[in-house]
Amino acid sequence: MAALRYAVEEAVASLWRGRRSAVLSIGTIAVALFVLGAFLVLTVNLERLAADWSQAAELSVFLADEVGADQQRAIEEALATGPVVASRAFVSQSDALARFKQMFSDLAASADALDANPLPASYEVRLQPGVTGEAVEELASRLRQVPGVADVRYDRQWLDRLLAAVALIRRIGFALGALLTVAAGLTVGNVVRLALHARRDEIVIMQLVGAPTAYVRGPFIVEGVLQGGLGALVALLALGVAFWATQAPYLVPLAAALNMTAVAFLPFITAIYLMLGGMLVGCLGGILATRSESR
């Protein structure tokens, strides 16, 4: 406990003395975690979008014009509520026409001019949330075999593409973040090494008086941790400010255009992880510096 107190006191003092070079390493950590954090905000929101879209995902089963009662019963059996199908609604030919007239009022007159109703009857099927694309594809191909089914359409493909894009963006973000984090760790290591170099005489004296290793190395490792933590804090603040500044002019209209409820910032726990990550990187930088220097 005394060793920790000593290490923290010395680290804070050393950080203040070497504040010019410390700004450099805190800055690099901040940039690395800002990039990582920005990608996390992006993926968090794309995931929410994907979730919203999966809730609304529908399968449309269009029926042939002359469909018998038996055939319709068979179709309904295939669309029974289960692990894939959440619910279904029947839209008759006349319902479809009424809906068409309502949506495209300009064309209502020309629709009336037709002898017969050209729109097919259909089932609108709501899917269970989280259903895989394969399961839906399997249901769709089964339905296509059922007599009386003219066509099956669903927007699952779009969703799968969106999910694949989210995964790709997340991977790119992590790769970039990891690369920048390594750079940040090395910068911290070098800055800590500078501090170590400046206090070499002191370290020799400490070693000569038999100071425990925790007292000799501890302050430098804590200095790395502090740099990492401060860098993460700067990154989170910058991210918050950037989010707040773009929210009203860009993010809110974007969310509305995409049918999303709102654009979210980083979840609290993720922010904590970023903070801990920054401290860990700083700690590793500090350990690296004290190891290479004591050799």
């Binding site: 000593y6 004296i205 008086v209 038999g210 100071a211 007292y215």
Partner: peptide
């Protein structure tokens, strides 16, 4: 005091 300080 340094020696005593690092010796806790």
């Amino acid at each position: 005091a340094f020696v005593m300080r690092v010796l806790g």
